[in-house]
Design a protein around this nucleic acid. Structure first.
Lengths: 189, 189
DNA sequence: CCATGAAGTGATTGACCAGTCACTCACAAC
DNA sequence: GTTGTGAGTGACTGGTCAATCACTTCATGG
């Protein structure tokens, strides 16, 4: 019988494919309830081979998380670049818009939520801190905003995660509308 | 003693003990990686009996979460009561302080973080929405603040969760100080 | 043609875990 | 004193999952 894809490729290319699959699967189920086999199936790879590409499950999760923050940083940077003038508030606003666009598919968003919950694993906590540091420093340096304004930027990002996680724009209610007001939430696509 | 009704049912008392144990254990490991046996051991009970007190694992988690939000609401209410004057900003500030005191032991905080990550289970998502609705409405009604002020209150609460989860006050760094500035974080005790 | 190594897998192992069930034990009522 | 009831448990089941290992297949260079 013809085996699977059977196409030989470099292991580096495979690693990239597996990381993409890991982002999608870990975003769905979180760290603990997502089996390696799910990631392997999505990458069209045998579960065993995943362990040849990554030394263990945490390592794969961290790789996915690193890539996630890389994409976020890239989006923020791109957003800052398209701001009309040099007003810090405007620049942060554009960055927020770019972030909202990026997480429209919810994968990168849910991965961050699940990562926060899995932060009792030291390597995961380190990865989250690395990513958050990069994002925070980037928001500050590219916008030139005051510290408290950057802090508020991150805080509203967290609120955005909460809103999206709970589908507050669907589950209407006065309180839900209050929390979602003015927050750009993902259109479905 | 006298009649059936007057005798305290130890079953109900046990349920309360188990819920307390569940808060502590689920806060440590999250929903998926905390076995019922861990909760049972902390409650000094056999794992099997937990299933006689609660129909299943989710049901136990939801009970713990409900109790968590009940405590949060109580703390906020208490904080609002001790505000000096009627200024909405002052009242919200007092409520924030009361919340910071409540989550000093990190159990109630981490439980909320883990619940958000486990929100793909509908019953858990419902419980989180219930709790958040209660908290939001309480913050609004007791403070009389404008909607956007209440929204900011919740957003900074989420930021507070992030800071505590990642131990940003320990792991110093310029960006970490920026994010933690002015946020009352738990003293260790 | 064959040898070397890299790509990739099937089968298995050992551990863990949610949920079930038949059972014991203590106590109270008749 | 026996009969009924609720508290509580030991032992088991069916299933899942991370990680390992021996194995096969393929490409390439000498």
């Amino acid at each position: 019988m013809t085996k699977r894809g059977a196409t030989l490729s470099t292991s580096d290319a495979r690693r990239d494919v597996v990381v993409d699959a890991a982002i999608a699967e870990f975003a769905r189920g979180g760290y603990h309830s997502t089996p390696i086999s799910a990631v392997a199936a999505r990458a069209d790879i045998s579960p065993a081979y995943v362990f040849k590409l990554f030394p263990g499950k945490v390592s794969l999760f961290v790789a996915a998380l690193d890539r996630c923050y890389e994409l976020v940083a890239h989006a923020l940077s791109h957003g800052a670049a398209r701001a009309a003038d040099d007003d810090p508030g405007k620049i942060l606003h554009e960055m927020g818009g770019a972030y909202a666009e990026l997480i429209a598919d919810r994968n990168l968003l849910m991965l961050q939520v699940h990562a926060q919950s899995a932060a009792d694993t030291p390597e995961i906590a380190d990865a989250v801190r690395r990513g958050l540091a990069k994002v925070t420093e980037l928001a500050k340096s590219r916008s030139g905003a005051e510290d408290d304004h950057v802090q508020r930027f991150i805080a509203y990002g967290q609120l955005c995660h909460l809103i999206a996680t709970l589908d507050l724009d669907e589950h209407a209610g006065e309180w839900a509308a209050l929390l979602s007001a003015g927050i750009r939430h993902p259109g479905k696509s």
